[in-house]
Design a protein around this nucleic acid. Structure first.
Lengths: 204, 204
DNA sequence: GAACGTCTGTACTGTGAGATACAGAACACG
DNA sequence: CGTGTTCTGTATCTCACAGTACAGACGTTC
């Protein structure tokens, strides 16, 4: 997997390559990005690319891992608070805000990559299985806490709730990306919220 | 957009090219499919490709249109019956069955293409906007009939219900494709069903 | 059956883009 | 400083693949 840099300059260069590549891929898709594009955007020469990465596939894989880490790191603070309906609302609001932001090219960075690359090798697909598992884990944990505290009915299946929530996020982002409007994302999350509210224990 | 065939043989050849290309693209992704691959799979020569299609992009666009038509045609009979909860259940069951079938590579043919190509030109993106609109229209119409007959509460927004249902389908199929298990699709559709059930008018 | 349009087969070309070679600059470390 | 290692710049190679050229087969119509 290429050379891991030992100096500060090396690390900076490798980061710059990864960031530029991730940005280009996010905007134009994996297939449309050439090594020349990455070089230009990162301001490096061909030799650097092959110094830090084995080949194009290795670079793409590295971008996938970096993207997953970035997205999950951004989600983490809010995900740890999803142990109440209010916390879930804050999380959903952040997702909508994020999906609506700036140029609103939108879509989920992980979801987009996943549907472009999951038809690839099994190793790449596994990376996405892991990514979504890591994403869903704190949600399941939060719902379980809600169940233990009696906030959630004891008979509901929390993994089922988590699954439908993740699907609503991914589907909502995909359709919002195509239509270039956040409405469908909001509606999808509204549906997930309704399902979650349904699972709340009736007030005593 | 290439020559439209006038003879039966010509139509058959064009169809064969389109079918083979659609199949290859479905399995390996747009970027991974070369014209040589299509030729081999369809058993035609290079000249045929360029006889019926202007260039590779034209072929891809044609595959998109053909895929959309195929998927929507398959959905149509069930979609016309979604004016009752039982009809919706039949539709959902068919989607799960279809997503579980055969090699279960899964994913939505339209959704996959959309996320691969929506970053392309605006014209291609528009094709997917239209496709999803065509898909959603009979669902909205069915829900509206349910509302008019009093089966659905009058205050609910049927487009909102339709939107979240479409998102559940797309998200569920995407995640099911990655995990190679239909569970998440079932859960996602279960969530949509709960939202729909919530909108039913209380029994008199 | 001949002549014209439609369709098909094969061989070729040009180039974009991934990969390599190798020399030179920057830097760490004694 | 000097020497070895890490990092960078440029030029070049190679080849897969989109696109072209052109001849030949088929088939339809008068």
């Amino acid at each position: 997997m290429g050379h891991t840099p030992t100096t500060a300059r090396g690390r900076a260069t490798r980061e710059r390559i990864l960031d530029s590549a991730a940005d280009l891929i996010q905007r134009h898709g994996v297939a449309a990005v050439t090594l020349d594009d990455v070089e230009r955007a990162a301001g490096v020469g061909r030799s650097q690319l092959y110094h830090y990465f084995d080949d194009r596939d290795d670079l793409i894989r590295s971008v996938v891992h970096a993207t997953v880490d970035t997205v999950l790191a951004a989600q983490e603070p809010l995900l740890l608070e999803v142990d109440s309906l209010a916390g879930i609302d804050r999380w959903f609001d952040a997702i909508v805000a994020n999906g609506t932001r700036q140029d609103a090219v939108g879509g989920c960075a992980i979801g987009s990559l996943a549907s472009q690359l999951s038809g690839q090798d099994d190793l790449t697909r596994q990376a996405f299985v892991d990514a979504f598992a890591r994403w869903e884990a704190p949600l399941i944990a939060g719902l379980r806490r809600m169940q233990e505290s009696g906030e959630l009915r004891p008979d509901v299946d929390v993994t089922e709730l988590a699954d439908l929530t993740m699907a609503a996020i991914q589907g909502g982002l995909l359709l919002a990306q195509i239509r270039r409007t956040p409405d469908q994302l909001r509606h999808a999350l509204g549906g997930a919220r309704a399902a979650l509210k349904d699972a709340l224990a009736p007030l005593p």
